[in-house]
Amino acid sequence: MMFRPASTFPLRLARRGAEVLPGLALTVPIAIVATLIGTVVPVLGSALPAIVIGVVAAVIRRPGARFQPGVEYSGKFLLQVAVVLLGAQLSLDAILRVGAESLPVMLSTLAVCLLGTWVIGRALRVPQRLRTLIGVGTGICGASAIAAVSPVIGALSAEVSYAVSTIFVFNILAVVLFPLLGHALGMDPHTFGLLAGTAVNDTSSVVAAAGVFGAAALGYAVVVKLVRTLMIIPISIGLSVIESRRSAEGRRMTLRGAIGLVPWFLVGFLAVAVIGSLGVIPPGPREAMVHASGFLIATAMAGIGLSTDVAALRRAGWRPLVLGAILWILVTATALAVIALTGFGY
């Protein structure tokens, strides 16, 4: 293996910066606008507005070759950095305590969602990568899970755009319907927090739904949601192994090979979560990391939107949306059933 001399690093860094700067000059302003929109309308978040603005801009005039390196850099590398910084939201104490309480509901809903993705997605003839993105987005944590898994399975920009948009539709419905459902079933705040944290996708929508139900439900719902985010790690590792076996034409997977498949950004995600749990990261920098993660996700979504093949979205048709609807109903029904069977909150 050949190593480049360290003395050339500044020159290489300058060249890379000059290469990606034009594209970043497109994606960063879009991310700023999307973040402002998400601040004014929290239920929207910043990921969806960034993708929508990017797609609209691409329809009007798709970025030329000069902008492509920076657009791709935003949609890939910055996306991976954002996933690493997501780990700052978690603490080991919260993971252990809330994880123990919510594990039956969390694992049940994830298992049902993944099984439904495979069976129903195949029956609806939804393309494999797209159904995987919709499945992990519904079963784990919306746009964040889609962001983490998309580079693992080599998803196309059009597939990421469609998956994020599909998940968003049901986030909006959840904000409206879940508080009504919780009150109708006579749930206490703790129980509703568990339901919202396991059955609503993006964090912004979990916050909105729990906030509508009552302030007492909010804290628990958010912690459940963040613990649920950890499911990104085993799912991504499993998908890495599956993708490797598929591309390796049936060659036997060794332990060393499996370890090598773990994406660097998922290792970084877990490392940041552990470091944060040890109290090494002060509250100010931790909050800055969380905000930086959200902004980088918006920047990445802008890059994905700008490189979206709109014709491919049209070809996807209605089937992915139907898959998303069925999975969302399955996850909600499973969460309610397990909560009732375990007597949680009663």
Rank of each mutant, 00 (worst) to 15 (best):
V33E: 08
S74F: 04
F77Y: 15
E101F: 04
L78M: 15
A57I: 07
V40T: 14
E72M: 10
T109M: 05
V56W: 06
P42H: 05
L107W: 09
T117I: 10
A94H: 02
V112R: 06
V43L: 08
R97H: 15
R122Y: 05
L115K: 09
R131A: 10
A57F: 03
R122K: 10
E72D: 15
I120F: 14
T27M: 01
A58Q: 02
G99T: 05
A123R: 15
G135N: 11
Q128I: 11
L90E: 09
V112M: 06
I32N: 06
V59G: 03
L114S: 03
I134K: 03
S108M: 11
A100L: 14
T109L: 03
L92E: 09
P29D: 12
L114W: 10
V81C: 08
A143W: 00
L92V: 15
A111W: 09
G139D: 04
T35V: 05
F77P: 10
V112L: 12
A88S: 13
L85C: 03
T39E: 08
A31N: 05
L96D: 14
G116D: 03
R97I: 14
E72N: 14
A58I: 00
V59I: 03
M106E: 14
T117H: 08
L48G: 01
D93K: 07
P42C: 04
L44S: 04
A100C: 09
P49C: 13
V136S: 06
V105S: 00
G121M: 05
R66V: 10
L36R: 14
V136R: 05
P69A: 15
A123E: 09
S74T: 02
R125K: 11
V98Y: 07
K76W: 00
C141A: 05
K76L: 07
T109H: 00
I37W: 02
T132Y: 11
P63I: 07
L114A: 06
P69Y: 10
G45S: 13
V56L: 12
V98T: 14
G45Q: 14
G87V: 12
L90H: 03
L130N: 01
V41Q: 10
T132R: 13
L124T: 10
R129P: 07
G99K: 06
G70W: 02
P69W: 08
V41L: 15
L85V: 04
T109I: 12
C141P: 05
V33W: 11
V119Q: 10
F67P: 00
V52D: 13
A57P: 00
S46M: 10
R66M: 10
R131H: 15
V81W: 07
V84E: 05
R129T: 11
I30K: 07
C113D: 12
L92P: 07
Q89P: 06
W118I: 09
A50Y: 00
S108H: 05
T39H: 11
V55C: 10
M106L: 15
L130R: 01
V105H: 00
G139N: 12
L133R: 04
L44F: 01
P69G: 14
S144Y: 02
L107K: 08
